[in-house]
Simulated scan of single mutants.
Amino acid sequence: MTCSAEARALIDEHPGLSVDSRFQALRLCVPGPDDAPVITPFLLAVAADPAEEDLVRIEAIRLLEIVPLRDDALAAGARETLIRLAEHDEDWDVRSAAGCAVFRLPGVAREVPRMRDLIAAEELDFVRDDIAAALRLMARRTT
């Protein structure tokens, strides 16, 4: 699989960078049109790593929202991972970011019933409200 030099550098350099540098590298990355197959698994792994700094995990989630996911299976895998994070992660910021990001991915209409259940089950008001607002925004975009 090929990907842009920027995406390859992000992936290759990530483990050796400081927390601040990892955060900045993710924040400044703009995925290219062919980067999705390589960068998506990397970003999902960063997002799901409880040993990673929360701000870095959240930035990986935010970057997933702009990855050009053209492959249905890849998009479905990304949605599934983000939904699991939104359901079960110990950090409420990560749960909120993951739940909101689901609504920016292709094929999300298939996940709306599950996301409604997730919203109803969320114990923290502000996480529930964030994800519910993302659902409403997605509904407005599609109408």
Score class of each variant (00 low, 15 high):
residue 71 D to N: 15
residue 135 L to T: 00
residue 139 A to G: 06
residue 47 A to Y: 02
residue 21 S to C: 07
residue 123 E to N: 13
residue 18 S to W: 03
residue 77 G to D: 15
residue 63 L to F: 00
residue 40 T to W: 06
residue 108 V to N: 04
residue 7 A to P: 08
residue 125 D to Q: 14
residue 5 A to I: 12
residue 48 A to P: 03
residue 2 T to P: 06
residue 107 G to M: 12
residue 1 M to Y: 10
residue 103 F to R: 00
residue 124 L to P: 02
residue 45 A to N: 11
residue 5 A to V: 12
residue 104 R to E: 12
residue 108 V to Y: 06
residue 99 G to Y: 00
residue 4 S to N: 07
residue 113 P to E: 03
residue 5 A to K: 12
residue 103 F to K: 00
residue 28 L to V: 04
residue 61 I to H: 02
residue 131 I to A: 11
residue 54 D to R: 14
residue 127 V to I: 14
residue 141 R to H: 12
residue 8 R to N: 05
residue 98 A to V: 04
residue 43 L to M: 06
residue 128 R to I: 10
residue 16 G to K: 02
residue 131 I to Q: 08
residue 82 L to Y: 08
residue 131 I to C: 08
residue 75 A to F: 06
residue 56 V to D: 03
residue 131 I to P: 08
residue 124 L to T: 14
residue 76 A to F: 05
residue 9 A to W: 01
residue 135 L to Y: 04
residue 72 D to E: 15
residue 117 D to H: 10
residue 122 E to D: 15
residue 78 A to F: 02
residue 129 D to Y: 05
residue 59 E to L: 02
residue 1 M to R: 11
residue 67 V to C: 06
residue 14 H to D: 08
residue 92 W to F: 12
residue 62 R to I: 01
residue 31 P to C: 12
residue 33 P to R: 15
residue 92 W to C: 10
residue 92 W to G: 02
residue 92 W to M: 12
residue 9 A to K: 12
residue 25 A to C: 03
residue 89 D to S: 10
residue 135 L to V: 02
residue 16 G to Y: 01
residue 57 R to Q: 10
residue 114 R to D: 06
residue 38 V to P: 01
residue 63 L to Y: 01
residue 44 L to Q: 06
residue 8 R to Q: 15
residue 53 E to C: 05
residue 20 D to I: 00
residue 2 T to M: 07
residue 114 R to Y: 05
residue 109 A to W: 01
residue 78 A to C: 14
residue 14 H to K: 06
residue 105 L to Q: 13
residue 19 V to P: 04
residue 70 R to N: 09
residue 109 A to Q: 13
residue 137 L to C: 12
residue 25 A to E: 00
residue 125 D to G: 10
residue 55 L to A: 11
residue 27 R to I: 01
residue 21 S to L: 10
residue 130 D to V: 04
residue 72 D to R: 14
residue 23 F to K: 04
residue 108 V to E: 08
residue 51 A to L: 13
residue 110 R to S: 14
residue 25 A to L: 02
residue 129 D to L: 09
residue 42 F to S: 08
residue 43 L to K: 09
residue 43 L to W: 01
residue 80 E to A: 15
residue 20 D to R: 06
residue 79 R to M: 08
residue 26 L to Q: 01
residue 137 L to F: 08
residue 37 P to T: 10
residue 49 D to F: 04
residue 122 E to W: 00
residue 134 A to Y: 05
residue 46 V to T: 08
residue 47 A to Q: 10
residue 59 E to S: 05
residue 107 G to Q: 11
residue 73 A to W: 07
residue 30 V to W: 00
residue 80 E to V: 03
residue 7 A to T: 09
residue 129 D to A: 15
residue 79 R to N: 07
residue 118 L to P: 13
residue 137 L to H: 14
residue 119 I to W: 06
residue 125 D to P: 00
residue 24 Q to N: 09
residue 58 I to D: 02
residue 1 M to H: 11
residue 34 D to W: 04
residue 127 V to H: 07
residue 12 D to G: 07
residue 21 S to E: 13
residue 1 M to S: 14
residue 127 V to E: 07
residue 96 S to V: 06
residue 88 H to P: 00
residue 11 I to Q: 06
residue 126 F to T: 14
residue 94 V to Q: 01
residue 101 A to I: 05
residue 54 D to Q: 13
residue 142 T to H: 09
residue 39 I to G: 02
residue 5 A to D: 14
residue 35 D to L: 03
residue 51 A to T: 13
residue 116 R to I: 10
residue 83 I to R: 14
residue 127 V to T: 11
residue 103 F to A: 00
residue 3 C to H: 11
